[in-house]
């Protein structure tokens, strides 16, 4: 008995040491190291000069980590037709903003209004405290929200929110995800934006910055048009660690089955129908010769996109027919 107790105590003593030794295992590539390491001094130095005051286009690029991307897309999708929002954690390196993680906020909006309320704020503060205690040291670098089915752009309220945050919270980034288009196209539909400060609007002609890149549905087009000159899109890149890479390779071994078995035609039938109706409606506007808020090239692009998506669905069906029934 006593011998056993002794063994247990010494075991507990060494357990931690043992564990630490066991854990020092992951060989990191140089790149991983620099991107996943958070250096407070470096961040202070990066932001202390407030370079965004001199150049409203200071931040040009966003790098999003694999985990942040997956979290945001899944959260956006889980909201269904409702808008959801959350915050992103990360850092800045030169003119690039790096998003390392994201978390959801318990806020659900509808239509084009997403606004963090008081409870969400409390939630956020508590979450940050806890995650910092757990070793995630990056500060909040921006917010994301979803636009289910109507594309990635900033509405009037979004612009106001973003402007406010950029005034007090710089560096700050806005990311918009369209989960419906993501599902429909089978490709992540995501946009990253920053607004111009109110007193420093760009001198170029209004509407040049964000317009022409997004397909906006008819009932939102006014909201889009009015505010589209108040912000600019950032180039978006994605990265993953080398461990992620190896993991993904192994995951892919089991994943291809889903690629084959899914049927895009069925998953997206509602969206496709809605989209067709939308295009038809826009074209009817041309006939009436009313307001010219809809551009021809935009309709063209939308019709191309939807045709592409249906082609994908059809091709995958044809492929499966060939593979499994005609052999």
């Amino acid at each position: 008995m006593s011998a056993h107790d002794l063994a247990r105590n010494s075991g507990a003593d060494t357990a931690l040491k043992l564990f630490e030794a066991e854990n020092n295992i992951v060989p990191l590539s140089k790149g991983d190291e620099s991107i996943y390491y958070f250096d407070e001094n470096f961040q202070t130095q990066q932001t202390s000069e407030r370079p965004w005051n001199n150049n409203i286009y200071y931040y040009r690029k966003v790098e999003i980590s694999s985990i942040a991307l997956v979290k945001m897309v899944m959260h956006a999708r889980s909201g269904g037709d409702l808008e959801v929002m959350g915050l992103m954690l990360g850092k800045v390196v030169g003119q690039t903003m790096v998003v390392l993680d994201a978390f959801a906020l318990p806020v659900e909006g509808s239509e084009t209004r997403v606004n963090a309320q008081q409870e969400a704020y409390e939630y956020m503060v508590q979450y940050l405290e806890q995650s910092q205690a757990s070793g995630r040291r990056e500060p909040v670098i921006g917010w994301y929200h979803s636009h289910p089915g109507y594309g990635c752009w900033l509405s009037g309220i979004d612009v106001a929110t973003q402007m406010l945050n950029q005034r007090y919270q710089e560096p700050f980034l806005a990311v918009v995800i369209d989960p419906k288009r993501t599902m429909s196209a089978g490709k992540v539909d995501l946009g990253a934006f920053r607004t111009f400060p109110e007193e420093q609007q760009p001198s170029s002609s209004p509407g040049a910055s964000a317009e022409g890149t997004q397909d906006v549905p008819l009932n939102k087009i006014e909201d889009f048009g009015v505010h589209s000159s108040k912000y600019y899109p950032l180039e978006v890149g994605y990265f993953k660690s080398s461990l992620d890479q190896q993991l993904m390779e192994r995951l892919w071994r089991k994943h291809w089955i889903t690629t084959l078995s899914r049927s895009p035609l069925i998953t997206n039938s509602d969206y496709t129908t809605q989209k067709m109706a939308e295009i038809a409606e826009k074209i009817n506007i041309f006939g009436k010769d009313g307001k010219k808020s809809v551009s021809y090239s935009q309709v063209l692009r939308e019709s191309d996109a939807i045709a592409d998506e249906i082609t994908q669905g059809h091709k995958s069906n044809a492929l499966k027919m060939k593979l499994f029934t005609e052999l």
Binding site: L69, S241, L251
Partner: peptide
């Protein structure tokens, strides 16, 4: 579904650091 699209994106598109 969303997870699949996102992970596929991670697996095939995004570069390793």
């Amino acid at each position: 579904e969303a997870e699949r699209v996102a992970t596929e994106h991670v697996a095939n598109i995004s570069k390793t650091v």
